[in-house]
């Protein structure tokens, strides 16, 4: 159904997302969820720089994941040099 004229962004121009893009929430693309073993994580941030969706958060001691946008591609699991990231079936989690 056509969106009403007033709701269509003027000139197809929309504010650029700075931290999050509410118009493109991609967490529901995920079939596998990254799970961190905090004891193994060295906070080297290779996963952070490798994540194509910027869904790895930097923290003081270990990384965490932004599951609102994580598509479950598994690249973090591939690149982690110490095997701290595993992938678990998404439906194992009720949240």
């Amino acid at each position: 159904m056509s969106v009403p004229v007033k709701e269509v962004p003027f000139a197809g121009t929309v504010p650029s997302p700075k931290t999050e893009n509410e118009g493109m929430i991609t967490g529901n693309w995920r079939t596998r969820r990254p799970v961190l073993d905090a004891d193994k994580c060295t906070n080297c941030l290779i996963c952070w720089i490798s994540c194509p969706d910027s869904s790895v958060n930097q923290n003081a001691d270990v990384v965490s994941f932004n599951l609102k946008y994580c598509k479950g591609c598994g690249i973090c699991n591939e690149v982690c040099p110490v095997g701290a990231i595993s992938l678990a079936p998404e439906l194992d989690f009720e949240d």
Binding site: G27, N28, R30, T31, P89, E90, L91
Partner: peptide
């Protein structure tokens, strides 16, 4: 075709 589609779709 895949079970996780019950979640968030």
């Amino acid at each position: 075709t895949e079970e996780t589609l019950v979640k968030g779709v």
